[in-house]
Structures are given as C-alpha cells and as structure tokens.
Simulated assay, not measured.
Amino acid sequence: GDDADGATVEAGEPDPGSLPSTVVPDDEKTPFDVRHLIEGVCDAGTFLEVHARWAKELVTGYARLDGRAIGVVANQPKQKGGVLFVDSADKAARFINTCNAFNVPLLFLADVPGFMIGKAVERQGIIRHGAKMVSAVSSATVAKISVVVRKAYGAGLYAMAGPAFEPDACIALPGAQIAVMGPEAAINAVYYNQIQAIADEAEREAFVAAKRAEYAADIDILHLASELVVDAVIEPDELRAELIRRYAEAAGKDRCFSERHNPITPA
C-alpha cells in the first residue's frame, strides 16, 4: 500500500523477457541495451528515462523497485562503449543532485571502461566535468547501491559510486571486473617494451597470456569480495531480490550526518 509521501506503491513484477542472465552478455566487449537490464530488475513499465536524447552513453531515470521509487544511473554499453564523456558527467551530476534533493534512493549500474581520454575531451574540461559527477556521488546522502555489471575501470569506478565512496552496498555480478584498466590494456601498457623485445611470436603470445592471467587473478571478483572491497557477488537473476532487501535495510539508516551542508561544487 501507499506510505505517507507516496514513495511506495503496490509492488510490480520485472519484465519476464528481460532476465538479467539473458540480457547481459558474458564478454565485456559485447554491447547490449542497459534499458533491458533495468526492465529485468525494476518493476516492468515503471522506468521513466530523463534526458534520453542527450549524452546517450549514460542512462538516467526514475523507476520503481518492488513499489519503491528509485533513481537509476546506468552506463549504456551500446553507445560509445559506455565511456563517460563531458556531457554524460554533467547529465549524471544533475540527476544525482536532483535525486538527493528529493530524497530518492540511487541505484548505479556500472559497466564502464572509464572516462574518455584524448586532447579533444581535455580541451572540453573532462577533469572538471568528471569532478562534478564524482562530487555529486560522494556528497549524496540518500541510500546508494552500486552494482558492477561487467566492468568498472579507472575513475569510472569512483564516478559510479564504487567501494571508495562507501555506498550502502557494492554488489558485483559473477563475471565483473574492478581494476585500473582491463587485463589486455594493462599488460600492453606495462610490459610494452618487453613484449616488443620477444622475437618469437609463440613465445610472445605465451608471455602475454601468462601476464594477463596473473593480472586477472589479482582483480578476481571473489578475491575482492573476500577482502570486503565488494559486499556480495550475486547471480544475475537474484539481483532484484538482493536489491529489494538492501534498500529495505538502508531505509532504516539514520542519515542525519550533518546539520550544515555547504558543498563546494567543482565549477
């Protein structure tokens, strides 16, 4: 039933045709439409997208989860690989601040290779705009739950409310990876000279494969869970039930951290 402020209505059901296990591809490079994942986790038909035609590499909008109103911030892998740009950082910052102002809990669905790099975005001020998003995430006092869907690399992990910002929970799906960068890029960057120095192609491939395996073991999601970097590793189709429980628990948390709020927002 409805509560006093109308934040909760009769619980709905997720879209049975959008089961997370079927919509999320195993390969992190395979694009998919994150809106299908939202429909498969939230109450079907309740997702109201905000700024749908602007900065499409990030999806923002309101939805209901078991009748409870939430704000969703999700990377969109089928647009520019889900990389964060200047506009998507601004879009996220505004949406997160709006949710915080109106006491709407936030759900982050992270599938992000990081922020865009290069001269063009640096001229546009990617650092300053990215800082706005990170500032909004870190200063929001509403319930925040972050889900690492397949990957969260570099500063993208911070921007999507990763463990460093102590969200109410950080959950990962079984194939998720949290790292500075992916195994492929990391090994190419760190061992470039050594790789180039190996003349025999088979030997070079073996060297690269061994180093990638070593790196992958370090960022193994179960290893990170054992060190409490992430709070839980959840099967995709159990994600909805887990989120419902986590938000119910977060609802009872005292959020009166400070009587004064004077954010110095990056310009």
Rank of each mutant, 00 (worst) to 15 (best):
L222D: 14
P77N: 00
Q177V: 12
D26H: 03
A213G: 03
D15G: 07
G17P: 11
Q194A: 14
D87N: 11
I264R: 14
T141P: 03
Q177I: 07
L157H: 03
I117Q: 12
A176L: 01
K56G: 15
R128A: 14
E13I: 05
L239Y: 09
L224C: 07
A4R: 08
K253R: 12
G12Y: 11
E166H: 15
L239D: 08
A161W: 09
W54P: 02
A202C: 02
A74M: 04
V34R: 02
Q194P: 01
R35D: 09
P167I: 11
L109D: 03
P16N: 08
L19K: 14
F257M: 11
N193W: 05
P113A: 07
V9E: 01
S21D: 11
A217I: 00
Q196T: 07
Q194M: 06
I38Y: 02
I126R: 05
Y247F: 15
A199E: 13
L48P: 00
A216R: 12
Q177E: 10
V229C: 06
V73E: 04
A241L: 08
P163C: 03
R260G: 11
K78S: 02
E57G: 10
I171Y: 12
L19R: 09
D33Y: 05
A11I: 04
S88G: 00
P105M: 14
L65E: 10
C42N: 02
S18F: 14
I198F: 07
Q194N: 02
D43W: 13
P31E: 09
I117W: 09
K151F: 02
A74H: 08
G45Q: 07
A92N: 02
V229D: 03
A63P: 08
L58P: 03
L37M: 04
A209E: 15
P174D: 11
D33K: 11
L157K: 02
V86H: 11
A44N: 05
T60W: 03
F115K: 03
E205M: 12
I219F: 01
R212L: 09
G45L: 08
L243P: 06
N103R: 02
T30D: 03
A89N: 05
M160N: 06
P174L: 14
I70N: 02
P167V: 10
A101L: 09
A69M: 09
V72A: 11
I127D: 07
F32K: 00
A136P: 12
V112P: 00
H261M: 14
F102W: 06
